[in-house]
Computed example of a mutant assay.
Amino acid sequence: MSKFEGVHVALVTPMTNDYEVNYQRLYEICEWLISEGVNGLIPAGSLGEYATLSNEERRKVVETVIEASKGHVPVTVGTGAPATKDVVYWAEHAKNSGASGVMALPPINYNPLENEVIAHYEALSKVGIPIIAYNNPRDYAVDLTPDLLAKISKLDNIVGVKEFSGDIRRVHDILEKTDLEVLIGVDDLAMEGPLCGATGWISGVPNALPAEGVKLFQLARAGKVDEAIQLYRKLIPLFHYDAEPQLVQAIKYMMELAGQPVGPTRPPRLALTDEVYVAIKEQFQKAINSPVTKG
């Protein structure tokens, strides 16, 4: 039985206008997302700007999300950090704070050898909390190929993989070669992923459109392809932003358009150009005003 089924939102981190973390808004956003039907929450990931947070802020972000969840949905904590010992620290903090699992990148500070990648996950496995390995060869040097995942999956607590390569064929290969749960990690494969056997989706744009994201994923998992395609085609122009380097700025703006403002991004992320904001707004309005999306 899958531990991480359904739509798990990779949370943004709300900020005030002077770039301080807005914990009250974070709590409110979590409550809203749960009320909209999402299946899980993921703080302190890339979309949550974890690399710009101090350790104190990061701890409080994780603890705020766990408190806001009230046990209604699982909280899976991002553990990204340059050193393995720091990744282990964040996994231990997540476990001690009551998280249901962690999401863990391979080593991010240089291009490691295969045995170093495996040793990294071995150290993390010893913490004793369920682990979703995070494959993101678009942004990091390591590619967790299906063959490498087959080796990593033999570790006790590795239960799933967030697959962000953008190659839908990976889903089939991972399911064939491992017993891992596959959670599709890029929004513009949110329909294809479950059709190919992914049981979860670690999502970005559903920060702003949670009910629509849940509906799409449920339709695809149920094999209702015609209905899923109609909804997917309305949302996919927005989903494409999830695979862009400026995904945080774009998704935070979508949340503003959805009536759930979360403030700016911290530098080095700066505001987007007016042209990009106009394009996002046009695509957002077209999506939400579609009879398919409304229905």
Rank of each mutant, 00 (worst) to 15 (best):
G6E: 02
L11N: 00
M15Q: 08
D18K: 00
Y23F: 09
W32A: 11
I34R: 01
N39K: 05
G40W: 00
L41C: 08
S46A: 11
T52R: 13
E57P: 15
K60H: 12
K60W: 14
H72W: 14
V75A: 00
T76M: 10
V77H: 02
G78C: 00
P82L: 07
K85C: 10
D86H: 15
V87E: 01
W90M: 01
E92N: 10
S97D: 08
G101F: 01
P107E: 01
I108D: 12
N109D: 13
Y110F: 09
N111T: 15
L113W: 12
N115L: 13
E116Q: 08
A123Q: 05
S125V: 08
V127T: 05
G128Y: 09
P130V: 05
P130N: 06
I131N: 00
I132T: 07
Y140T: 11
S153V: 15
S153K: 10
D156C: 07
R170H: 09
H172G: 14
L175W: 07
D179N: 15
D179G: 12
D179R: 12
L180A: 04
V182F: 03
V186L: 13
D187C: 06
A190G: 12
S203C: 12
S203Y: 09
G204H: 04
P206Y: 01
A211C: 13
L216E: 03
L219Q: 03
A220D: 06
A220L: 08
V225M: 12
D226Y: 13
D226V: 14
E227M: 15
A228S: 10
H240D: 12
E244I: 10
P245V: 01
Q249G: 09
P261H: 05
P261F: 05
V262A: 01
G263S: 02
T265K: 07
L272C: 06
V276R: 03
Y277N: 02
V278Y: 13
K281Q: 10
F284T: 00
K286Q: 13
I288W: 02
G295H: 13
